[in-house]
Amino acid sequence: MYETTYHRPKTLAEAGSLLAKSDEAKLLAGGQTLIPTMKQRLAAPSDVIDLRHIEDLKGITETPSGGVRIGAAVTHAEVASSDIVKRQLPGVATLAGGIGDPHVRHMGTLGGSIANNDPAADYPAALLALGATVVTNKREIAADDFFTALFETALGEDEIVTAVVFPKAEKSAYAKYPNPASRYAMAGVFVAKLGDGSVRVAATGAGQGGVFRIGAMEQALGSNWSADAVAGVKVSDGDLLADIHGSAAYRANLLTVMAKRAVAAAG
């Protein structure tokens, strides 16, 4: 690892000014991607700004409309074991409990995951399928506008994710096929029926451009919420990832299988 300078701000304002002061600073949330990347010398930030000690970024609360607000620095383990999340958004609890391994889940955070926008990360599928809102220190961004490309988001240079607000959902579930070695999703599908009755489906791990919605599955489930309804929906493999772990056609098939499993789990 190259030399770096560690900072531990206590407030969001302090973190923001540290970030604005340096061109080469990086925000350090759980560090489960950033630190391995720094160790491989693929990243060499002059400064790392630890966000884990900022009270404003913590906590899980139910919103007045029956949704859930999760602070950006909340860990995957906290989300997976939260009674509020398990009751209101069981798909999000399942998803968080399946990220990495227990040790990674004790450190990794919601904010870090979405800000990194790894194409094989799990959280982006939940945000997109639930139509969540990303709250930053400057504004609110709809999930539809947030994930822009592989490892790219709508976040500005000095912008910090503070929370994610999920709307009320009648049903939510997530199913993924993890890479047997890395545990990252080779294909993951999140299905949601929102409080207004609309259905949204999002896929991760499989798209060349990162997370994306599967419109044909949304239509099929909108008129018939059942695993059978998505069983016949094939995703075109034209825009899917292909690598040593699986071809685009294989991933296309996995998406249909994962969607069936997710709908079955949602009940």
């Binding site: 560690y6 531990r8 350090l28 560090g31 489960q32 630190i35 391995p36 160790k39 790392v48 630890d50 884990r52 383990a77 227990p102 040790h103 990674v104 004790h106 450190m107």
Partner: peptide, 15 residues
């Protein structure tokens, strides 16, 4: 009290 990978955390984070 929580299991973490000590190779994936800075000592400064554990201050």
């Amino acid at each position: 009290g929580k299991a973490v990978k000590s190779c994936t955390m800075l000592a400064a984070q554990a201050d």
